[in-house]
Simulated assay, not measured.
Amino acid sequence: MKQFNTQHWFLPLLLLCVLIVAGCSSTTTSAETQAQNNPSVEQTLTPSSPTSTQPMANSPQLNGKATVVMTVNKSPITIEIDGTNAPITAGNFVDLVNKGVYDGLAFHRVVRDPQPFVVQGGDPQSKDPKFPSARLGTGGFIDPKTSKERMIPLEIKPKGAEQPIYSKTLESAGIQKAPVLSHTRGAVAMARSQFPDSASSQFYFALADLPFLDGSYAVFGYVTDGMNVVDQIKQGDRIQSAKVTQGLENLKN
């Protein structure tokens, strides 16, 4: 019988915990943490979960592909957004880019040691340079139409499926197939808390292949050019601009 290699599994589990704690919603991993990080968290509710075949009707959707060019440290990062396999997640991101939400926001979490993991940003609170850095990672996009945080359902499409699975990880849905959009180096995905439907505006770049995240977090695109720029991002660096350069006509609100 082979012995269980605890060292082999410890690091992926540790990194996974880092990402979960970094979830973008103000609903974090415990009631105590919520109260410490966001005094108004009691007014923020996790949205009702859509069924596996009926995503949120009022969510922006991307029907097809789009291209986003993000400028960081005066250098462009080109991202191909995949609305074919992740229409709601991709639509949310393209809509926020088009609204200028990401312009000026900081990357508040960069994990490269003990091995490359993620570069995470997209917390609207980071636009204010005086906002406490220790509290970054708790904010999401506040929709001016509703004055509430816009959250989207977890959306993962298994290989061979016609439609994505919503509001569940593939494991909790009992699906053993790999997702169509996997966490290869250069993947762009949504950060969230422990609650599946808590992604809002925070996203991350995968700095390496991260297969242990597949099926649990929603990938919606890939860096096609400028990964060298991503590799140089430091904590506190800001997104100077993010623009939809192609495919905006595929966005449906």
Rank of each mutant, 00 (worst) to 15 (best):
A22K: 00
T71A: 03
L14D: 12
N37V: 01
F10A: 14
N63K: 00
T29N: 04
P55N: 11
P76A: 12
I20K: 15
A31Y: 03
Q34D: 12
C17F: 02
Q3H: 07
N58D: 08
E32A: 09
S30D: 04
T71P: 06
L16M: 07
V72F: 04
Q7A: 10
M56I: 04
P60H: 07
L13H: 13
S25Q: 03
W9C: 15
F10Q: 12
N58E: 03
K65W: 04
L16V: 00
A35E: 12
N37H: 01
S26Y: 12
L16D: 12
T44A: 08
Q34K: 12
S25E: 09
G23W: 05
T6M: 10
S26P: 15
V21S: 03
W9S: 15
M56G: 10
C17W: 00
P60A: 07
N58T: 06
A57R: 04
N5P: 07
S25K: 06
T44V: 13
N63V: 07
N58L: 02
I81R: 04
E80S: 13
N38Q: 07
S75M: 14
Q34V: 10
V41R: 07
Q36H: 12
Q61C: 15
T6K: 05
S48Q: 08
V69H: 04
L13A: 14
S52F: 02
Q34W: 10
N63C: 02
A22H: 07
V68P: 03
V72A: 04
Q54W: 01
T46K: 11
I81E: 05
L19Q: 10
Q54N: 04
G64V: 11
V69Y: 00
F4Q: 13
L15D: 10
T44Q: 09
I20V: 15
T71N: 10
T6F: 02
M70V: 14
K65E: 07
I77F: 07
T53I: 00
S40L: 08
N37Y: 04
M56Y: 11
N37G: 07
T6W: 05
C17K: 10
S48E: 05
E80Q: 15
L13S: 14
Q61G: 09
T78M: 12
N63Q: 13
V72G: 09
V41G: 00
S49W: 15
P76T: 13
T33S: 11
V69E: 05
S25P: 14
T29Q: 03
M70E: 11
T67P: 07
S40C: 01
S26T: 13
S49L: 12
